[in-house]
Design a protein around this nucleic acid. Structure first.
Lengths: 220, 220
DNA sequence: ATATATTTTTAGCTATATCTAAATAAATTT
DNA sequence: AAATTTATTTAGATATAGCTAAAAATATAT
């Protein structure tokens, strides 16, 4: 059973909202995510339920099925591969890729995606640092590294901190190094291990080795 | 006024059937080309008429307008650029590209097409030898060359013959070198100017310089 | 436990794009 | 010129995907 473009988009939204299928999602939440009305969502949930990509119990929200999860991951795979293409090959910047990838992800051609993957040299992460599922829907566990272990020119995304004291979090917030921030190592001072880091492609930040050692990132 | 995917496809069909807008096209012809029913075509022609991309007089077929011509050429431009991408970068063969390009051509992003054009190094012809209109809809006049003037490894498409005697055409037909055939020069014998030519990616053909000099092709 | 508020669904409508069957216009035969 | 054939359009369906307004179910507050 094939899904329409609209169905694929709903399924992807449900996958994200359910944290990869680990919790159920309400009609209202889907409506907010899809920027549409709850009435439209009810209709669509019935359709997705019929196609067995979600489990739908009226008034009790939805859970994504195993089949639905696989399909959502395939769409996510396509989206992220196209993002890599746009950034690496067509010189798009991070903030320009999403909309276009949102259209490209619905092109139906397994051969196209296989060849694109090959052409891009089997990337494991998209330009935002998000992992690209393989053709079976498997996602590579994100290898987390402390910032001080990253090399100059390495890019990545901040995903966690080791020291979660209020003082440290406050400091991070102040300098703009929040969880989820895209970073790139600009320079490393050999003498004391301090670093110069580009945050979100705009702000440059200096931090000591001690601070860097307490910030965990995934590499792109 | 933007066109839907279906409207774009109809407009492209009308452009082709009208030989680039030089003659009017009947409802039945459009139906045959689009593999749909005349009743559906009537409906669509009314819509395209409202959007002023065609001139529609009931029962008398349609003529494409200047605006319609420009839009059709933009779609054709996108289609052919994607075909070049698929063949040159993703190792698709000629016969695999059409369907996928048919989907890709509807992606809405002027920046994408501009960057793709640049990435492909501004190609002037698609893998079938058809010219790629520029961003203003201008099509480069096809430079026709006699086969004997082509270099080894040059690919192209047979578009005309100099000698159009029945005998010559009969010979061409017999060996499979019809108008429209995709060819590639495999070898050239310096001694007598005779050539070895690959036709439609499968058949190998030997021809004398005299024969080659009477066949005109466009180069890819 | 009843009333109120929130969430969700249903009913009925719109628009796109298709279809079949019937009606009508144009072209062709006789 | 009338009859027939062909081409085209209209009328009335269907399916998808959205909407608003009203109804119904669930959750929360008094």
């Amino acid at each position: 059973m094939t899904l329409t473009t609209a169905e694929e988009n709903y399924l992807k939204a449900i996958y994200h909202l359910s944290d990869g299928g680990t919790k159920s999602v309400s009609t209202n939440d889907v409506a907010a995510e899809m920027k549409t009305k709850p009435a439209s969502v009810s209709d669509m949930l019935r359709k997705l339920g019929d196609k067995e990509v979600i489990e739908y119990r009226k008034y009790y929200g939805v859970n994504i099925t195993e089949d639905g999860k696989k399909r959502a991951l395939q769409t996510i795979r396509k989206h992220r591969l196209w993002e890599v293409f746009l950034v690496d090959k067509l010189q798009f910047s991070w903030d320009e890729v999403h909309e276009v990838a949102e259209e490209l992800e619905h092109i139906q051609s397994p051969l196209l995606i296989q060849r694109l993957d090959e052409f891009l040299n089997y990337p494991k992460f998209d330009p935002h640092g998000d992992p690209i599922p393989d053709e079976f829907g498997d996602v590579r566990a994100r290898p987390r590294v402390a910032l001080n272990e990253m090399e100059v020119n390495q890019a990545g995304q901040i995903v966690a901190v080791k020291d979660s004291s209020a003082a440290f979090l406050k400091y991070l917030d102040k300098v703009g190094a929040y969880i989820g921030a895209r970073i790139k190592i600009l320079d490393k001072v050999e003498f004391d291990g301090s670093m110069e880091i580009l945050v979100d492609q705009k702000k440059t930040l200096f931090m000591s080795k001690d601070v860097a050692a307490n910030i965990l990132a995934i590499q792109s």
